[in-house]
Each structure stands twice: as structure tokens, then as C-alpha cells.
């Protein structure tokens, strides 16, 4: 809001041309770059611009946006969650195994799906509580805590099912959570929108959400204000792991199997999406909309590169460079802001 007022003020003072630059400096150029990237791939490969592909982009990006929104919570408190990727793998495998076990025992498909969803979500909560307790109560650096959790989750994801994907999940699971339309939107997109709405309300309307910004900006101020900063800090990791587990359950539905590699590069991508979108690594700055733009940008980039047949390994290189460049420009923007 302040930034908007600032922009309006600068328009009245300096005229339009200067203000465009000011708008970019305040909000980032990402929305513009996103549109340009989309059009550029369209020029290279006209099929990229079809409505079908646009829907595909939305579907693909919905998962990444959920994970970026999850990452937003710890990022606001000056932390991050490196365990996101491997926790996705672990929950994918674990929930699939629960589903198969219940299915074998009772032959009841709805019950199996509910049990798997509850189990997966429960594991997410547990991971979040452990991460949060170590960070907030024991005061261990989030980098160490979540790196350790990443190791644990990686080990569990690869050993639980012997390192193999868990196949033969009931069709109904994929049908409902991946291929059905809710209110005319694909299931993952609809879930993503609901999550974004809830996260937005939590972050902007609740004491917990507002406190996260304060924790990131000045941890001491939260303490002085009499807010339970440790509890809120821990809750940020719980919220992160909960959202991660929802995303992991959706991913499992899409592949119709519990995949030990489901998480793959989501740790890098979720942080990258949030930071490219404009969430500050120094805490206290960032909104849901940033995660949306960041997630869309990375997805457009990777689907676009698939369209023009860029080698998968080259894409990995490009992603690395884009991440570094984005953080550089972001810091440049922050320094330039008046």
C-alpha cells in the first residue's frame, strides 16, 4: 500500500515516464517479464499459445505455487525449509503405501483414500512440528534443522518402499484429485486457489500472520510486544509442512503412484519461485501474489523450454543461472528503491 501511494505521489511529481521505472522498482518487473517470456516462446513455437497449453501451464504451475506458498511462511521469518523436496517424496511414498495397505485389508476404496490423505497430512504435521520445535524452542539454525530433516526424509523416502515406486493406486484417487474439474477448474488449480485464499487471509488478517512479518523484520520487537514469538515461529514451519503435504498428495494423484523421486528439485524450485516472485530472503517481506508470479514464471520457462526442445540438463543449468540473476536483480531493486 505504501509502495502504491509512493508511486502515485511520484507520478504527480515526476510525470509518467519516470513513474513506469518507479513502478518497476517498487513491484518488480516480473509480471512484465512473465508476459514477455510467454510471448517469446509463442513466437518460437506457435503451438505454445494454444488454450490447451495455457491450461496445461496452469495445471503444472499449481503444484509449484502451492510449494512456494508453503515456503513463504518460513521465508517471512528469515528462515527457509530445505526439507520441502524430500518431504514431498516421503509423503508421496508413505501415503501410497497406507492406501495400498488399507485397500488390501478392507477393499474399501473411499476409506483407503481418506486414510492415505490423513496419514500423509499427519506426517506433514509431524515434520512441521519437529522442524518448528528445533528452530523455535531449541534455537537451532533453520538451515541445519531443515537440512537434517531433508536427510531423514530422503532416507525414509528411499527405504520405505525399498526405493521403488508404489504402483496400482486406485483409479478413483487420480480421477478425483488430478483429472476431475471442480467448478470448471482442474482439481489441482482449484485446490491451489483455495490454499492461496486461505494463506492470504492468514497472512493479512490474523495476529499470527501479521506477527510473521514482524518476526522477519525484527524478532526482538515481537518479543517486546508480548507476542508468543517462539510459538509463531514454530507454527510457520508447521504451516509450511502442512501445505507441502497437500501438494504432495495432489502430486501423488497426478502420477497415480507413490514416487520416491516426486520431490526432486522442488526444494530449489519452491525457494526460487518465492524469491524470484519478490519474497525477501531477509524476512518480513512477501505476499501470496509473489509466489503466484514466481511459480508461473518458472513453469512457463520450463514448459517453454520443453516446447523448443531444450535438453533437460541444460534446463537445470538455466534454472540455476535464473535463480542467481533473479536474486541479484531483486537486491538491486531493493537498493534502488527510494
Amino acid at each position: 500500500m505504501n509502495a502504491l501511494l509512493h508511486t502515485l505521489d511520484s507520478i504527480s511529481r515526476n510525470g509518467m515516464r519516470h513513474s513506469v521505472a518507479q513502478l518497476g522498482i517498487n513491484y518488480g518487473f516480473l509480471p512484465v517479464i512473465l508476459v514477455l517470456t510467454y510471448l517469446a516462446f509463442g513466437v518460437l513455437e506457435p503451438r505454445f499459445l494454444t488454450a490447451n497449453n495455457a491450461l496445461n501451464i496452469l495445471k503444472q504451475s499449481s503444484y509449484l505455487i502451492i510449494f512456494a506458498a508453503a515456503q513463504l511462511f518460513p521465508l517471512l521469518t528469515r528462515g527457509y525449509d530445505l526439507s520441502v523436496g524430500m518431504v514431498i517424496s516421503m509423503i508421496s511414498v508413505a501415503s501410497a503405501m497406507i492406501m495400498m495397505a488399507v485397500l488390501h485389508a478392507t477393499n474399501d476404496v473411499p476409506l483407503a483414500i481418506v486414510a492415505a490423505a490423513c496419514g500423509g497430512f499427519g506426517i506433514g504435521v509431524l515434520v512441521g512440528v519437529i522442524n518448528g520445535a528445533c528452530v523455535a524452542a531449541l534455537g537451532i539454525n533453520p538451515f541445519i534443522v531443515t537440512l537434517g530433516m531433508q536427510g531423514v526424509a530422503f532416507g525414509l523416502a528411499t527405504t520405505l518402499s525399498g526405493g521403488f515406486p508404489v504402483y496400482n493406486l486406485p483409479d478413483a484417487y487420480s480421477k478425483i484429485f488430478a483429472y476431475s474439474n471442480w467448478l470448471g477448474l482442474p482439481a489441482s488449480v482449484a485446490t491451489c486457489l483455495i490454499i492461496l485464499g486461505i494463506v492470504h487471509i492468514i497472512l493479512s488478517r490474523t495476529v499470527f500472520g501479521r506477527s510473521l512479518y514482524l518476526i522477519g523484520a525484527s524478532p526482538r520487537a515481537v518479543h517486546v510486544a508480548g507476542l508468543p514469538s517462539h510459538r509463531y515461529n514454530a507454527l510457520a514451519y508447521v504451516a509450511c509442512a502442512c501445505l507441502t503435504s497437500i501438494g504432495a498428495l495432489l502430486l501423488t494423484a497426478r502420477t497415480a503412484s507413490g514416487e520416491p523421486n516426486a520431490g526432486g528439485d522442488f526444494m530449489l524450485k519452491s525457494i526460487a519461485a518465492a524469491v524470484i516472485g519478490g519474497v525477501s530472503l531477509r524476512g518480513g517481506e512477501g505476499r501470496v501474489i509473489h509466489c503466484v508470479f514466481g511459480g508461473l514464471f518458472i513453469t512457463v520457462l520450463s514448459i517453454g523450454m520443453n516446447f523448443v526442445r531444450v535438453d533437460g540438463y541444460i534446463q537445470q543449468i538455466i534454472l540455476g543461472i535464473v535463480v542467481i540473476a533473479a536474486v541479484y536483480f531483486d537486491q538491486f531493486r531493493r537498493r534502488t528503491r527510494l
Partner: peptide, 17 residues
């Protein structure tokens, strides 16, 4: 640039190459 992001990026680049 934040060392965390730099080295995570160069990790991706190194493995990619």
C-alpha cells in the same frame, strides 16, 4: 547476492553441466 542462493544456483548449474 545471498550466498545461500548463489551456491544453490551454482550447484544446479554444476550438476546440469
Amino acid at each position: 547476492v545471498n550466498p545461500f542462493m548463489v551456491t544453490i544456483g551454482s550447484m544446479s548449474v554444476a550438476y546440469g553441466v
